[in-house]
Amino acid sequence: MVPKNKIVILVFHPVLHKSRINRVLLNAVEGLEGVSIRYIYDLYPDYQIDIKAEQEVLLNHDIIVWQHPLYWYSSPSLLKEWIDLVLEHGFAYGKSGRALEGKSVLTAITSGGRRDAYGSDKGLKFSIRNLLAPFEQTVCLCRMRYLPPFVTHGTHLLKSDQIEKAAEDYVRIIEGLRDGTFSDDDLEKQEYINDIIP
């Protein structure tokens, strides 16, 4: 069966060998049909991104996942470099830049802080959705749809069964997006895409 949506997961993790969560998430989705994974730090260890190759990858997929840990309320620096260079004017945006129109982008992040710490009076001032605004805006300017993010919170204290649970959720989300099982309305309502799973 040909999957409805082809998904590419772009992993931006400079120290994946030390990762506790992201590695498990990736192991879980590795080998799923219609899902490919690209380790961007390993592809461009010297930050010399092959722009043409990356654009080619985007054209060949329907859903793009940016998977990374949250560093200083933002992404590791290579994702910023990737956005700066790959989403070229005239390709991704601008009057004639319509190459990515209609595709979707999912941010899949891990964060050390608990969910209730973000955007509360006593904890951190901004919510995750506020903090991800630049990414959301970038995606929108490229005429793509920004999906609610997949967030794994409290990573420092997660026990292995909780990590397994997160990985299971991730698989269900990725499979659901691939097969188009989530309704647009449902997606629209969620703060996090995690919440769509009952």
């Binding site: 722009i51 700066d84 260079l85 989403l87 004017h89 005239g90 601008g94």
Partner: peptide, 15 residues
């Protein structure tokens, strides 16, 4: 030879 056209704003200025 590739160029770093994204960092080059001339196309955007033109638009």
């Amino acid at each position: 030879h590739g160029s770093d056209s994204s960092w080059d704003v001339s196309s955007r200025r033109k638009e």
